[in-house]
Amino acid sequence: MTTATRTARHPSTLVTLWRSTVGKKAVMAVSGLVMLLYLVAHMLGNLKIFFGPDELNGYAHWLRTLGEPFLRYEWFLWIARAGLLAAVVLHGVSAYQLSRRDIAARPSKYVHKRRRASYATRTMRWGGVILGLFIVWHILDLTTLTVNPNAEHGKPYQNIVASFSNWYSCVIYVVAMLAVGLHVRHGFWSAAQTLGASNARREKALKLAANGLALVLTVGFLSVPVAVMTGVVS
């Protein structure tokens, strides 16, 4: 048995992991959690908007000079971006491949329909897609500023205000924030289960944590467009 174990382990653990449903799901969980971590930080950063333009813009500048002189200007940012990109791609690809497999494993539906908890899975799927599209739009809006009405580099505060002063952009954001909430609500607990962190005793606590996290993120993110729309921030 031990020899079998060794030979089975050596060729490439990662390949075997990636090939198995459980392993691929773990990749999805880890990449998801990485993005989740980013979002928490990002949400907190965004809240600086309530302390005025200088605070937020300063923060944006600091992000770029972070790590100097060891790192050069914007290096930290690019490293983070690389990480995020990897996460989003791995996450998206595994999500896609697993979803394909899951649908194939249950080709014919039951004639007698019930509202099933597969609700969670379905929202995860389209919610994820919405998030993917949003991220693209969002980067064009506030990073590359391609679609931003204000488009002033180094001035995120003004850009954000500009962005949220037209209704369709607000709609996009609000929808995306709700998607984030739903996605994290199931995603966080799901990741714990996938990575084997859950057990009979922790199950409840983890579900609570997931709901809390989802709520905080959504509210935190939403506060910004709402503030702009209500004129609290301008």
Binding site: T21, V22, K25, L98, R101, D102, A105, R116, T121, W189
Partner: peptide, 11 residues
């Protein structure tokens, strides 16, 4: 065997 993966729906 062609079983699907788990999305932790708990059904």
């Amino acid at each position: 065997e062609g079983f699907g993966g788990c999305t932790n729906t708990g059904e």
